[in-house]
Amino acid sequence: MITNRLPSFACAGLICLVALPAFAQQGRLKLDACAGLAAKASNVVDITLDGPGLRMAARILEKDPEAQAMIQGLTGIFVKVFEFDKPGGYAASDLEGIRAQLQPGGWSRITQVKSRREGEVEIYLLEDGKGGNAGLTVLAMEPREVALVNILGPIDVAKLGSLEGKMGIPRLSEPKVTKQATKPGGAK
C-alpha cells in the first residue's frame, strides 16, 4: 500500500526541496538579468550578502546598535552598480529585465523621481501582506551610473536613508565641491 505511494512521496519531497529556497528568498531579483548593462559598463560593483555572510556582518556591527537594528531580520542584501565611461552609456531598455521582475509578486513602486541632470530614481517596496514591507528595491539611473539595490526582509526606508555619513558609512550623495576659477593676481 505504502510502496505504491512512494513515487508520490518522492515527488512531493522533491517539489518541497525545489520550492523551499524560492520561498526563503521571496522577492529576490535576478540582478544578472541586465546583461546589456554589464556589457556596456566600464566598471561593475557586485555585492551579495546573504546567509552566513550577512549574519557575520551583523555580528560585527554589535558596536553600532543602530546599524545592527537596521539589518536585523534581513535575509539578503544584493547590490549591483554599473559605471559608464560616458554619460548616457546605456539605454533604458537595458533595465527591462529588472523591471519585468518587479511587475508581479507584490512589488509596488512608492516613489519615482526624475531629474534631467541627475537621472531617475525608483523605489519599490515588497508588501508582506500584514501592512509592513518585506523588501526594498531601488533603481537609480544616473547619467554615468546605474545602481540596482535589492534588500530582502523588513526594512525602514527612512532610517536607512539616515545612515549615510554615520557609523563609517561614507556619504556618497554629498554635493561635489567645484573649484572656483581664480584670476592669477597681476597677470595680464
Binding site: 555585492i47 537596521m70 530614481v121 537609480a140 539595490v149 536607512l160 549615510e164
Partner: peptide, 21 residues
C-alpha cells in the same frame, strides 16, 4: 563581509537620499 555591508548600505542610503532630495 563588513566592508561589503558598509558599501551596500552607503550605496542604498545614497540613492534613497538622492530620491528624497
Amino acid at each position: 563581509a563588513e566592508a561589503q555591508l558598509r558599501l551596500a548600505l552607503s550605496i542604498t542610503s545614497g540613492k534613497l537620499n538622492l530620491a528624497f532630495k
